[in-house]
Structures are given as structure tokens and as C-alpha cells.
Design a binder for these strands. Structure first.
Lengths: 342, 342
DNA sequence: CTGTTAGCGCATTCAT
DNA sequence: ATGAATGCGCTAACAG
């Protein structure tokens, strides 16, 4: 009982029509009399016919699938973006192919492989900064690309103003009365050239400066992304002669590490220490973490919209002025920030 | 400058050979003299030729892609399984297509659509229990399927013995001296017929019984999956006249809710209350949660191995005795469980 | 070893 | 409105 693939020819013969007609009814082409349409539909039903997506693709010269390139797709923030992406792809005619990259070499491999015709009809790249070379390859391969949480002068992208986010987070702390504020983020130089942590720090510096607060470099701590690493860094901050009264973590994940460190030291939050994170992942709400909300799910959503639009649309990657959607961020005040003790 | 797809014909002409030869060098077929091979390779390089995956698929009558059907793929445990799956697919010739299901109707749609020839060469289903009807469709469509964290008599599956896991968790608590143990899990009847929570509870009951402990039904609390819901349930347990000295949560996510509830009440953990979870997700280690470890990543890994094997292999879904890998679970003792106070 | 040819399953002119 | 023919890009079987 080897599965017998039933093709349009089978349907055509059975219905006593030509394959063209079958193809038309399958594709809802109006140029078919409603009676023959009915008849064909019946046969299709009876034979349990399903058009071969692959044959369609070859004939249409489209892959009918869009690729998503994500770094560390297990990170909560990335997962949420993916969910947004999946939710709209699911309702489209496209298939979703996911590529997870955890090493630079894998990234390069993915960048290359997606840049050949007939791989994907479009590509979404999350948090990875492509080089001009990569962009060039995609362009000459005619593959539309939209960037999320990263940018390039010639590519459409969905971003949030991390500098502004960092500024707002810091401002929130300052308004509460803090002046001695610590920062915990990713290493400036990392394998993937992530910018977000750096930008958030930049925003912090500006806020500090605008409020006439001088920043003690000792209050800056950077380390591998992750709660555990952040926990250690938080301890360092708290070990300082003049420890900060508030800590701005470049991500919620890192903020969790700070919370944990405080707990280990019996430091009351927010009474003795204010903590603010960034991202507003699900766990943040649960833990009552004050944080900077960025529209993760929505960013995924929009990226697909943009991509689909750019696929149907005209511009063959030659748009003079690529779309650049900057999503709003705002501080969500919960219970981990408060006025400093006197 | 519409991207000019370069085909094997272009390469053939340019290299002065037939398309068959080009195809052979592309597929590393040894039946090619090394000189012509070199020559063809040069041309391929020069023309930047990449074989069209779609054309290959059509010709080979394979989709060269495997689908993964996951429920709530944002849940940490699912994400970890996905990571395991992706890691081995990435090194294979297959593409990974992800389908996230969050509603029963979407599930049914996915079950159906994947059951037609030419959709995917193989399918991995996570945590969703397929009906005989679905299994039948896959079988007649000749689509190999392997189940993860769910099972069916005629399908290969990767499972963990949740009953045993629940037993071990409870035993751990009993050995510490607890007899008044609460349980927090998913609703017995849920949209997707998840069994794990139910099985873990079953294991708990057996352990209790084996140790001659009678279970007070009040100590059983079930509610929607999630930390927040679990937090509320934990409060109910703690509000009891004779509150439990230990709580077994059917998942780490739910255990986090218990931890939070305890914190809100100023209950010391583990001194005043022991908490044990299930899954051993990353956050569990970070929070020092005692839990039942199950090989999440590994389960993904193995499922792909099994699937690939079943794709290459002979058995057209007619295996008389499908593989049934039961992965081991064990208690990871950390800092949320201890002897009860006198 | 290598060129030629016939499909793979479908969409799409082009006639009718 | 509908049937027949052509092509999408590649693999595999068949000659040579």
C-alpha cells in the first residue's frame, strides 16, 4: 500500500475535463462554469486530492516559504517575537522555516544559504546585524529581507529606540530620587555585535548627564547574557564601598539575576534597592518587575507584514528609502522600584 | 536587474558538458572523471550556481523538510525540545518547518494539512495526542510521524514516565518527613487532553499510598497552566486549616507561582514550606528549585533521530512494534525542599 | 565516463 | 469556458 499520490491528471480524467480546468478550480479562477466546477470539486473530494505544494512552487517560481533567522531562539524575548511572526504566517499561504543560530559560523552559513534564489521568498532576520556583503548577496539574489531589532541603511527594519528606552528607565530612577545607579549589561564586544545593551547604556548615560549626575565607572558591569552571570555582577555592584541604590539591567533576564542577588543578601526590594529591567517578558509581569516594555510580539507581527508587502510589492530591493518602523517603548512601573532610603 | 536564476543548463553549456554530468558533480556521484568534475566545479563557482531545492524536491519526490507541530511553543519546556530538534535538523539536509498550535481548531487543521503527500517528509508532534483518525490519515499518506511527550499504540514515541516522575518527587518529600503534601497541576480536562499533569498526580498518589499516607482531597488544586494561576492556587492551599508542609507542582512554571505565593506570605522556603517542581527548565536551576529533571533537549534530539531513521528506513508506517523510548527522570535536589519543621 | 531524454505535478498561455 | 501544449529546474535511467 504505497501511498498513491493523486495528481490533477487523475482528477481531470475522472472528471472528464482537462488538467487546466482542474487547476483553475483549485485556484479559484472564475473562468470556469459553475457546473463543471462543482463536478471537479466532487471528484477532488472523492479522490482526496491535494495539490502538491512543491509542484506549485516550481511552476509558480516561488518557494512559498519565508525564513526566519534568529539568534538564541530560546531567549524569552526572541520566542515572543517568533510567536508574533508565526501567528501571521499561519494565516498566510506561506510556510515558516526557522533557523536558529548560536555561533558566528552558523550565522554566516545561514546568511549565505538564504541568499540564493529559490531558497525562501523572503527572510526575517532577528537581532543579527548583516554586513554590507551579506546585504549585497541578498539583493542580487532578489531576496526581500526585513530586519528586526537590528538595522541596515538599505533594508527595511523594525526597531525600538534602545537609547530612548535606556533614557526612560534611567529617568524613572532619577525621578524617584536615585543618583547612585548601577548598570548591568552584555559585553560591549560580543560574537554577534549585539547593540541593544550598548544603546541602552548610552541612553542611561544621556539621562544621567541631562540631570547633572556624574557616572562612576565602577557602577558599570558587563558580562555574558544570562541570569546567573547577572547575579554575580550584581553582587559585585553590591560589594562596592558605595553601592548603588538602584540598578538598571539591560534585560529582564539580567534583572532576575539582580533580584536573586538581593535576595541572597537579604536586601529588601524595592525599599533598599530599586531594580528596573528591559523587555517586559512574561516572567517580568509575574515577578512584579518594573521594566521597559517593548512590543516584542508586535515586532514579529509587523516584520511579516512588511515582508509580505515587500514580496508582493514592486521594489526589487532597490527601494531608495527603506521603511524604518520604530516601535514605542515605555516604562512599566511595578514593584521593584521606589524612592531610595535616606 | 531581475535576479537571473542560473540553472544546470547554464552550467552545462558553459562547461561544455551535459546536464547529467553537472547533476552528478553536484550530487557527488563518483561516476565523473576528476578533470571534468574540476571543470564543472569551476563553472559552478564562477556562475555562482545553486541548485534549486524545489526542483530537486519535485524530481526526487521528497519535500526535504520535516515539520514540527508544537503546542504553545513559547513554553520553556517546549522551546527546549525545539532547540534539540533544530540542532540536529540544522546538520541534516532537511528544512525545519514549525507549526505552533494554540487552539484545538488549529491543531486539527495542522493534523490534516500535514497528512497529505508532499507536505513534509516526516512529522514530529509534541505533547499533542492524535486520534486514531489522524494517525490513519498520516499512515495512508505515508507520512512518518514520531511523537514526543505523548503516545499512540502504533506510532514511535519519546516519552518520560510521568507517573514515575510524580512518584519520585513525592517520595523525595516523604523521605524528608513530609506527610501533608499539596499538589498543583493542570485541569484534568483541558482542550488538548494533556496527560502529563494527570500522570504526575497519579504517581504522587501511588507514592502516598505505598507509604501509607492518606491524601486529603483538599490538597489537590488544579487550574490553568501558568505561574500566575499557580500562585493563586498556592494561596488556597496555604489558606487551608491544616496547610501542607510541602507542595508538588506539576511543572516548574507552576512551582514558580508557589514560590511567589510563599514570598508574599513571608513564608520561608524551604524551612516552612518545601516546593518541588517538574521539568528542570533553565530558570529552575537559577532559582535553586528542587525539581524532577526530564531530558527536554535530548527528547528533541532523539525524536529527529528516530524520524530520520524511519524516513530512510523501510517500514512504511506498518511497523508491528513501534519504537518506544522512555527517557529517565530523576529528582534534582536543590534548595527548595527540606525537612518539615516540628 | 558522459550526453540525451523522460518524467516529477502543476500553472499558464494559446487556440478553440 | 475549456482542452492541449509548454516550461519550471532537476534527477535518473538509458544509451553510447
Amino acid at each position: 500500500m504505497p501511498p498513491v499520490p493523486v495528481t490533477i491528471y487523475d482528477v481531470a480524467k475522472e472528471a472528464g475535463v482537462g488538467v487546466g480546468t482542474v487547476s483553475r478550480v483549485v485556484n479559484n479562477n472564475p473562468r470556469v462554469s459553475s457546473e463543471t466546477r462543482q463536478r471537479v470539486l466532487q471528484v477532488i473530494e472523492r479522490l482526496n486530492f491535494h495539490p502538491s505544494p512543491i509542484a506549485q512552487r516550481l511552476s509558480l517560481r516561488k518557494t512559498l516559504s519565508i525564513g526566519v533567522l534568529a539568534v538564541y531562539f530560546t531567549r524569552p524575548s526572541v520566542v515572543e517575537r517568533l510567536r508574533g511572526i508565526e501567528s501571521v504566517i499561519a494565516d498566510s499561504e506561506y510556510d515558516l522555516m526557522v533557523y536558529n543560530v548560536e555561533t558566528p559560523s552558523r550565522r554566516d552559513e545561514c546568511f549565505r544559504s538564504t541568499a540564493s534564489t529559490n531558497r525562501v521568498d523572503g527572510l526575517i532576520v532577528i537581532s543579527l546585524a548583516p554586513a554590507d556583503e551579506d546585504v549585497g548577496r541578498w539583493a542580487s539574489a532578489g531576496v526581500p529581507v526585513v530586519l528586526v531589532d537590528t538595522s541596515h541603511p538599505t533594508l527595511p527594519c523594525i526597531i525600538v529606540d534602545d537609547i530612548s528606552g535606556g533614557y526612560k528607565a534611567t529617568e524613572h530612577l532619577i525621578e524617584l530620587g536615585h543618583t547612585n545607579i548601577g548598570f548591568i549589561g552584555d559585553p560591549i564586544h560580543n560574537a554577534f555585535n549585539f547593540r541593544s545593551s550598548r544603546d541602552r547604556y548610552e541612553g542611561m548615560c544621556r539621562a544621567l548627564k541631562d540631570h547633572g549626575i556624574v557616572f562612576n565607572p565602577e557602577l558599570y558591569q558587563a558580562g555574558e547574557h544570562g541570569s546567573e552571570s547577572a547575579r554575580l555582577l550584581a553582587h559585585r555592584l553590591l560589594d562596592l564601598q558605595d553601592p548603588p541604590t538602584a540598578i538598571f539591567a539591560a534585560s529582564d533576564t539580567q534583572a532576575f539575576g539582580v533580584l536573586q542577588a538581593a535576595k541572597e543578601r537579604g536586601i529588601q526590594i524595592p525599599q533598599q534597592l530599586s531594580v528596573i529591567g528591559y523587555d517586559d517578558v512574561e516572567m517580568a509581569e509575574f515577578l512584579n518587575l518594573t521594566t521597559v516594555h517593548q512590543p516584542l510580539f508586535d515586532s514579529g507581527l509587523r516584520s511579516v507584514d512588511l515582508l509580505l508587502q515587500s514580496i508582493d510589492g514592486s521594489d526589487p530591493s532597490g527601494a531608495p528609502d527603506p521603511v524604518r518602523q520604530q516601535l514605542p517603548v515605555h516604562v512599566v512601573e511595578r514593584n521593584t522600584t521606589a524612592r531610595p532610603m535616606q
